[in-house]
Nucleic acid binder design. Sequence first.
DNA 1: TTCCAAAATTGACCACGGTCAATTAATTTC
DNA 2: GAAATTAATTGACCGTGGTCAATTTTGGAA
Lengths: 194, 194
Amino acid sequence: MSKPIQNRTRATRARLIESAQGIIAAKGYGALRVEDVVQTAGVAKGTFFAHFAGKDGLMELMIGAQINAFLDEAETWPAPQTIDDLVSQIVPLIQFMTSERYVFDVILRHSGAAAREEIGPIAQTFTRQVDVVARWLSDSPFRKDISGYLLAEGIQAFSVQAMALHFCAINNSETMEDRLRIYLDAWLNPRLAS
Amino acid sequence: MSKPIQNRTRATRARLIESAQGIIAAKGYGALRVEDVVQTAGVAKGTFFAHFAGKDGLMELMIGAQINAFLDEAETWPAPQTIDDLVSQIVPLIQFMTSERYVFDVILRHSGAAAREEIGPIAQTFTRQVDVVARWLSDSPFRKDISGYLLAEGIQAFSVQAMALHFCAINNSETMEDRLRIYLDAWLNPRLAS
DNA sequence: TTCCAAAATTGACCACGGTCAATTAATTTC
DNA sequence: GAAATTAATTGACCGTGGTCAATTTTGGAA
């Protein structure tokens, strides 16, 4: 599965992924059905499950790839010097993550949670995001009393919070972006010690 | 549904809930099957869905009730004066929330997310927890540069982060409690302004 | 008491993710 | 190149959540 031995295997897997990408592009992540994927790919249902760890496994790959694309770009950006800049640099990613309720659910379900031993694709991107943001922070004018790594973890926690509230009916008076700005200002620029 | 008109309705609903409670007590939340619930309750499957918004709706009620029980007790506790106290007062709740992977998933899925217009039971408990913790903080020696409400929201965000990492294979070197302590110390006791 | 409209209940049926023994294809051995 | 071995694929089948037209029960109007 991780190391296809036959060419046939790689070809089948590629067809399945291509098929899935087509369906997602056309109808969105939440509308993807395994039966549709295998039908478009021209294989039997069982083949799908021989290639991926279920529908969720495929989703991890697809969504994880998308998040990594965002992080690839984020990595090239300069260290943000203001909260506003930081928020602007995070927003594209969290906008993708909240583009569909289903996508956010999948991400949450796998964010800190490798199924078994090895860490899954989405959990990897969360680790990577902390690294990317920590690197930014090493060259940013925010609080220095704790490590950039810890700061980055906090940013992630607040991002998740902002995204979760975004889907809450009662909390739509502020935009996700505004809410995140408030959180991160409080987190990165504390005015006074206790 | 919200206002049972007939006694029969209330009785049926009570039997369904009782049945569900029995199954959960015996086998855990994740092992609950709707078919088992209706069989034990002695009603048809369709009846279940006439009484609850699906399996998830029932779970929201059951888990929400449990969380509320924890908050009932938490409300009677004094304002924590140290991070350790605060963590100790939060830990019982997050221990329940992480008692089963399935429970945590359900909670995440509904934490900030009312299905439609009205806010769901679990989302309500999240709002309530912020209130309870904010009240604690009004009488605690932590940072005062931001509102207790915002502080409480942050505590919630960090709690979720700690819980999520708890289920991650790669992150089990520290306990959930230790991780939370580190987060909350950084959040509530910033040493220096930027 | 009889009849009616609304409410509650039923259970056959569907959707969809997932399984696995059996079959077919590829690779290795001699 | 035939036989044996390993890998990939198949599709009938299952579990489980959810739907809905048909049926039964209920409370009240006449």
